[in-house]
Design a protein around this nucleic acid. Structure first.
Lengths: 338, 338
DNA sequence: ATCAATTGCTCAAACGTTTGAGTAATAAAA
DNA sequence: TTTTATTACTCAAACGTTTGAGCAATTGAT
């Protein structure tokens, strides 16, 4: 099934030159391959005239570079990952890459399938948001030569490049803020999955409590809720939190924050008087809601820039840059929820 | 630069059979090509053993099908398009496609560039959110044989397949609701770009006013604001609206609604008493904010399903399905903002 | 015993590029 | 005038698949 698009040979025939010459000209190698200016001009002209566009499949097959990057997020519909995708798109475009995306839904099998698809498609590199229970597969991935960078979370158990925001610091700042405002019994609502970012946020929270002498070893105020059955469990967990007498809550991410706000609204508790609120991430809703939610905004754009930079270096294979965890500072957004 | 991935020839050599045979087996054509069960099993086995993954570039080059769909939205960071991307991803995956995406930022040149890139990459089909001033290029696109479907908006001036939500109806319902609640002077805030969905929403709004005898031909209450310089202009336009004595506003989409809410909050106007609010789209923020914003939710999932269905039909080229505008009903979400 | 049909495989071209190697013609140097 | 360099091209293999055509061996029909 040959395509009906204009190809090199069409240009070659029209000018009565070889296909190779046309290829050389159109890939900008006229100088180094000593093609005359005259012919070069003619080729470029008729290429434009005929509307030639290179077949990237053929080109990729020959050169071994597809010009495609794979982006694997948890869920592209989540605005956090959506804006991440946008920045990745921008940065990738600057380097001449297009991006193929996939959503893992925090499911390791899906992640594996998608990465395999990416490999099949000969992506030049991948940006991966790793999920729980995917360490084995990902470590096997690393043994192959396909370049990738983790983003948002890192993978413990093996060394790989990762770009994350400073989750520990963010959690520490948010928790400390609550403490400074006089809150004494601070709950932390997180997902019940083992992700580096969640864990770091719990640690930041705990450290802040300890530093303030507020950590009660007998009473664990870290509440975990399932990733999928969010709505169902959230209501009961929030009730637990209030029944335990907590005077404030630190939400570990945008979803937890937003969904919880819906319920809290129905409890007749007023923010920040009855209950103080802080959250990781800065979705629109936190800005629009009254009172505005104090939160920690992740440096998504910077993360993406760094991720692409590292990835590009790995792809070009310049120096063997050694695996490192790049942790970037975020921004505390002060509003009225505490 | 030959890849170091396992390829057909590696399997062939190991079993001392031809490359063609391996290809036949692994593409599931053993039966029709009469390959013995015995060999079939062996091939599949060693393929798995060696971790074979087909090179989709080579396959695509040979077959003329890349297995990739192009998705061109206005901005993937916008949750509306983000969830659209997600549903497209899901539906595409069911048919064995991956999706390459791009954001046009409502810019016709970017749109053109991105579509050209998609074509260069030999996408099997495209799902396009058309933008203002892109009609010429898009109509030229249609003359080529590359299948595409418009989504969210259609393109006037030529016939092409498009899947949109019933924008007229949604606007009519929202406006009528305001009228029923007793609001008399209803402003409509829209983007100042010529997009079919915006236009249809304005028409729905106007019809509702006319039907209620509220349309004052001497006073145009449709306020237009630029797409890019949103923040700057929005404040002044909103002040205009209140100064003109409007008692309610119909926002034409999620962005306009959300951004406006931030300003309205500072004017000391109480919703819905001083000013009634309704909006197109149903972002999280409309649910969380107090009072909740009554709005019209678009059937994004359904739109995506239909778009992919139509696209697949065009790709397979079954029957020459004739261009049609598919308009899908949305859902009125009643909350407390009017 | 002969011819036809079926089974089970191999061959090699083709998809559209890129690129190292080769070549013919002209110019410069000896 | 011969040799060397330079210029401006062409050639053809290769990237990893797929697939129509071909072929040898076996089976079935006559």
């Amino acid at each position: 099934m040959p395509s009906n698009q204009v190809k090199l040979i069409d240009i070659a025939r029209k000018l009565d030159v070889s296909v190779g010459l046309v290829s050389i000209v159109l890939s900008g190698k006229s100088k180094e391959r000593r093609i005359s200016n005259e012919l070069t001009k003619k080729v470029i002209e008729t290429a434009k005239e005929l509307g030639y566009m290179p077949n990237q499949l053929a080109r990729g097959l020959r050169t071994g570079k597809s010009g495609i990057l794979g982006l694997l997020v948890a869920d592209i519909a989540n605005p956090f990952f959506g804006t991440m995708a946008r920045y990745i798109e921008n940065e990738a475009a600057k380097l001449g890459y297009q991006v193929l995306f996939g959503s893992s839904d925090e499911n390791p099998e899906k992640l594996e399938d998608l990465i395999n698809v990416f490999i099949s498609r000969q992506v030049d590199g991948m940006i991966i948001v790793p999920v729980n229970k995917s360490e084995n597969y990902l470590s096997s991935l690393q043994k192959q030569s396909i370049p990738f960078v983790f983003i948002d979370r890192y993978c413990s158990g093996f060394d790989a490049h990762a770009v994350v925001s400073d989750n520990y610091d963010g959690a520490y700042q948010l928790t400390s803020l609550l403490i400074d405002k006089g809150y004494k019994k601070i709950a932390n609502l997180v997902y019940n999955i083992q992700l580096s970012n969640i864990i770091d946020r719990i640690n930041g929270y705990t450290s802040a409590l300890e530093n303030a002498g507020l950590n009660d070893p007998d009473e664990d105020l870290v509440f975990k809720v399932g990733f999928d059955q969010l709505d169902a469990r959230l209501d009961t967990v929030l009730k637990q939190i209030t029944e335990k007498g907590c005077d404030s809550i630190f939400f570990a991410n945008n979803n937890l924050g937003i969904q919880s706000l819906k319920f809290i609204d129905t409890y007749g508790l007023s923010i920040p008087k009855d209950i103080g609120i802080v959250s990781f991430d800065n979705p629109e809703a936190f800005h629009v809601v009254k009172p505005g939610i104090t939160c920690f905004e992740q440096p998504i754009e910077l993360m993406c820039k760094q991720a692409i930079t590292v990835l590009q270096e790995k792809i070009l294979g310049k120096k063997e840059i050694e695996p490192a965890l790049i942790s970037l500072p975020g921004k505390l957004i002060m509003r009225e929820s505490c």
